[in-house]
């Protein structure tokens, strides 16, 4: 299990392989009307769906082994390149900063970028995220 003390600012990871399928897309957009990405073609998939997929990759590959305490939020999200059905996506993360919370010394706040890339290496979603991670020395 990785705790706050085990994280190093600057560390990068690449996770997974997630293919965008018509079936899953149809299921998502039938449940949620979310906006298209500005300027994207009609066959591009909605950007917010990509954020949900990025979260799934993070849970499967990183959070299962991390003393994660949830997230207070995301500072910014954008979608530089359109994604389409059939694209195969990989998640890249980079740890930008880590600090202990003065008000909650049993945990640390990390900021990291999450970038979802297509099979050509183009960024289809970028997220500047925050997460709370337990400190080893105060974990019971």
């Amino acid at each position: 299990m990785r705790y706050w003390e085990d994280l190093a600012v600057g560390e990068t990871h690449r996770y997974g392989r997630y293919e965008l399928t018509e079936k899953e897309h149809a299921d998502f957009v039938s449940r949620f009307a979310v906006p298209a990405v500005v300027g994207a073609d009609a066959d591009a998939v909605p950007g917010y769906w990509l954020c949900c997929i990025a979260m799934r990759l993070l849970v499967d590959h990183a959070l299962t082994d991390m003393a994660s305490l949830g997230s207070p939020g995301v500072d910014r999200i954008d979608w530089p390149t359109a994604a389409r059905i059939g694209d195969v996506l990989t998640l890249s993360t980079e740890l930008l900063s880590a600090r202990v919370l003065e008000s909650r010394p049993e945990m640390g706040l990390i900021k990291q970028t999450m970038t979802l890339e297509n099979q050509r290496g183009d960024a289809v979603a970028r997220m500047w995220t925050n997460a709370l991670v337990a400190r080893r020395e105060t974990a019971s």
């Binding site: 917010y48 995301v74 999200i77 954008d78």
Partner: peptide, 13 residues
């Protein structure tokens, strides 16, 4: 009459 989203900022839970 939304034609798309440029970005989302300060999403907070």
């Amino acid at each position: 009459a939304c034609r798309g989203c440029h970005e989302i900022r300060d999403l907070r839970w």
